[in-house]
Design a protein around this nucleic acid. Sequence first.
DNA 1: TTGTATGCGTTATCAG
DNA 2: CTGATAACGCATACAA
Lengths: 335, 335
Amino acid sequence: MNIYDIAKLADVSIATVSRVVNNSPKVSARTKEKVLAIMKENEYTPNAFARGLGLGTMKTVGIICPDISDIYMAKAVSYLESNLHDHGYDCILGCSGFKQKEKESYVKLLLSKKIDTLILVGSTYAGSGKDEADTDYIREAAEQASVFMINAKVAGDNIYCTYADDFQATYEVTKAYLRRGKEKILFMYDSESFSARQKLAGYEAALQDAGYPVLGNLKFKTKNDIEYTKNMLLEYNKVLDFDSVLATDDGIAAGAVKYAKIKGLSIPEELSITGYNNSILALCSDPELTSVDSKLGVMCRKTVERMIELLENEAQIEKNVCVPCEIVRRCTTDY
Amino acid sequence: MNIYDIAKLADVSIATVSRVVNNSPKVSARTKEKVLAIMKENEYTPNAFARGLGLGTMKTVGIICPDISDIYMAKAVSYLESNLHDHGYDCILGCSGFKQKEKESYVKLLLSKKIDTLILVGSTYAGSGKDEADTDYIREAAEQASVFMINAKVAGDNIYCTYADDFQATYEVTKAYLRRGKEKILFMYDSESFSARQKLAGYEAALQDAGYPVLGNLKFKTKNDIEYTKNMLLEYNKVLDFDSVLATDDGIAAGAVKYAKIKGLSIPEELSITGYNNSILALCSDPELTSVDSKLGVMCRKTVERMIELLENEAQIEKNVCVPCEIVRRCTTDY
DNA sequence: TTGTATGCGTTATCAG
DNA sequence: CTGATAACGCATACAA
């Protein structure tokens, strides 16, 4: 059942049917009603491909994240999908993993599907920070469709970024630790992503501003995995000496909690722990984790808001938006 | 840059270009090479909409789940996306929530996008089990595209289901509890979905087969929320008497662990706890949860495998596939 | 092996 | 307000 069939049944031209479908104002109430009735009766739905071909858009946005089974990314996609759906856009989802080649090919793939806009979720898409060429594929993509990045900052035309103020957050946590007399703060991270770099910088700045040295052996790389982190700490605590942990993810912090339990350390007295992302892991841990909430919901909303502005009104929108974090205090700290 | 431009530059017809793009065998090596070179040089990508219009497909499958921020669904989507990507299909994702109206309208929406196939992730799409009409919209959808359901069983033409053998799993857990002398097993659930019904049935059957009564006050409805569940148990433990918990989700089980901690009950001696889905919550809890692994990876693989068989080879495929669960024993039980 | 011509189902531009 | 008709970009049956 296509537009011709409906036109024939309604005894009008396809142009009129099209107008009714797109409810153009210039069609008489009577005609409109008649066509509408026939459409309903025959359950007519316009062919999306033809529509896309004519209009040059199917109102879909591509969302790429490294791994949707990650709690944080899943939440981001959830917010994005919801906001986009409210505005009549659909999401086509791609999970690229963390390898450069895969990221590039996934971006190309979605672009070839003629998405209206591309959203890149995750710090990993900002590259290592060492080589500007890492992000060339994003600037290239931005020539075909606007690119919005969440939790990453990349310079380039038609690239819009929204990220948490991780520097500020870790700066404050570190300062709070120092105030409580915690001077051997272990910074635990699992990648050198944009976000991780901001967090590290905040931690280091707070130490320096307070006149403390930044010790290399207090920066500890692990995996975002409870068991792995626990074991790493058990292994390294023989040579390491620390009284508090600042982790770049709740999964890491949860591992630190497990470690403390095994070592019989009291939390937060003997070991204070701060996690990140304020995820369900923070609530599942025992004691519950103090965690930095990076305001993902706000970031996603601001992203979609600007995107719609750009798409619908071709408005000038902010290129870079930085969202302040919130430190959610629970039982693993006493600052 | 479209197919005409390439044809002109390569000095061939658009038919030849099209053949090269779809690498048809009937094109000379020399011509093919020439066209390929021009295509690369000009970074030509066929217009997906036009392609879709001509072919009637854009090789996309629709995935609908109630809530992608749920760990379980996120994992399912992760598996599905990965498998589908391997076969050259893209995913368009929709999060419908749990309301009937929303589910129906989301299904219609994706269908109108001319997806090749629809995947419904989650037990909720099987309806309450009380009214067959609840699932009419699925049968209706199946007239337009094949529908694959994960963790739900719905009868109908062109509907294919894959689900875990939850009956078997809870039957075994219950039997194991009874063997260890646990006779007051609290069954905790958060919905009346297809899956929850299977789990309840397995629990009841095991009790009955062992000659125990099925007590109404040992079936406890809660939310899949740690804090909520903990508080509910603290409230109700005054009137309830139980020595073990069989929860339909790890989130519920984690709440039971928190409850036990507050009441000072030793786990698993005074209170044994079994969770479900073997999620990260099982590993984050302390002690770590014994949990039923519903083999989501296997379910997703079997779903996509059959789907591809149907799509590419129009083969006859199994309508209903039941996957056995695995009980992963950890520290909250001693059976 | 290659080219021509047509169909796919819309939207949009012009006339009327 | 309505209708005829030309794009939109590709795939393919049919000719050559």
